[in-house]
Simulated scan of single mutants.
Amino acid sequence: MEFNQYSGEVKDQSSNKSLVFATLAIEGTNISTITNTEGNFLLKVPKEFIHKNVVVSFLGYKTKKVPIADLAPEKNEISLEISVTQLSEININAPKDALALVKETLKNRDNRYFDDPTLMTAFYRETIKRRRRNVSLAEAVVNIYKTPYSSFKEDAVELYKARKSTDYSKLDTVALKLQGGPYNTLYVDMMKYPQYIFSEEALSNYKFTFDRSTRINDKVIYVIRFDQHPGISEPLYQGELYIDVENKVLTSAIFSLNITDRNKAAQLFVRRKPAKVDVWPTEVSYRVDYREKDGKWFYGYGSVFMEFKVDWEDKWFNSMYSMMAEMAITDWENNLTGKTPRYRERIKKSIILSDEASGFSDPNFWGEYNIIEPEKSIESAIRKIQRQLRRAERNSE
């Protein structure tokens, strides 16, 4: 398939601030991408769609349509205008009970979210940093066999393409690895997997309150804050739910683990460690964004950020490591036959992607597949890796 490639940045029109995780979708198709943590995007458009618009949306901003024909191959700047919500708009039929709205939204998933089997193409990236320096990178294109939201069957994931590099010399003799790969981000889909945070029994552990209102795609969105009740010692969650109040749909959620007891938190995340070292998380945060097509919503993006402190018994200083895993749906199609990969072709939930993937290859590795634009620090790390590979090839000749 022939395609054109466009890159650039999405910004706030008045402040010129970069907008992180803004969505760019080709109008009338299922092809999309998101901006990275620096507000930059990379969008690959099949030539049959270059006469269409790219629809750019971001929470709290007016959605903008830009003709693809007007885009340059590089250095595009797309500015979005803040959407001001009038108080009169949000007082009409406003719900008075935050918990009741959350319960109604969770019950609404069978009606408002995808009710057909769907085959999704997704780009997945995980990075491990020691302080601010990348020490491990892994990227993959995966196929997700998404079951209907009304189904209790779990989604299946198949690895299509992957690449990685790990510089163990910078890992301070601790080989930090992330188990679960794409499943870490897939299970953040709380409308598909409410049992991991908002099961019916778990709802009573939280206090839900109205926080503020905003807009997305010209719809009024209520922001509901949730916190675990004081007196509960188990590490639970706190954060914000973004609910389309008219349709009772969860459009986004941003939340984190409430680390009140570092030992209990460590038991949740640390599988194996050396005897003379303490490892515990100092931050664990999550994000999920949903997208809408023809009145039905679906998982569009998920991310997990984890920060760990590594304290050696015989060293003066401890080390800080962070892990970031993110996955964006870049295309999808109905899977009406319900076909799924055979079990031996599926990614296991115990996968460590950096052990499965091969080394970084040429810049055209991903071909026509949309990916999340790499951050500048990751780009420089990849260039360094590629130089090392070329040097190694020359030395072997």
Rank of each mutant, 00 (worst) to 15 (best):
E313T: 13
L99H: 02
Y160G: 06
Y290T: 03
G231F: 06
R212F: 10
S150H: 05
R287H: 15
D167Q: 08
S169D: 08
V174M: 10
N205E: 07
Q86R: 02
D278C: 02
S256T: 03
K52R: 08
V277Y: 00
V270M: 13
N217Y: 02
I90A: 01
Q386V: 09
R387Q: 07
A162I: 00
F365I: 00
E104A: 14
A328N: 08
T118W: 02
K296Y: 12
D218V: 01
G239I: 05
A25V: 11
E9H: 08
Y286R: 06
R212H: 05
P363C: 04
E89V: 00
L176I: 14
I197Q: 11
E368R: 05
N395Q: 07
P182A: 10
S199K: 07
L137Y: 06
R225P: 02
L353H: 00
I26H: 11
T29N: 05
F21Y: 09
T33M: 11
V135K: 01
N30P: 01
Y301E: 01
G28I: 10
F305Q: 02
A25H: 12
V45M: 13
P341F: 04
R383W: 02
A328S: 08
P235N: 01
F298T: 07
V304C: 00
E74I: 15
D97K: 03
R383N: 11
L59C: 06
P117C: 12
Y183I: 06
S256A: 11
N205W: 03
M306E: 12
R387V: 01
R291E: 07
V102P: 03
K349Q: 14
Q5C: 09
K219M: 00
K248W: 09
V157P: 04
R383E: 10
Q13E: 13
I34Q: 10
A392G: 09
N334M: 08
R390W: 06
K177Y: 13
V223C: 09
D110K: 02
Y160L: 14
T340F: 00
E104C: 02
L257F: 01
L87H: 12
S354V: 15
R394H: 10
D167L: 12
D116P: 00
I92Y: 09
K376S: 15
E27T: 05
L250I: 12
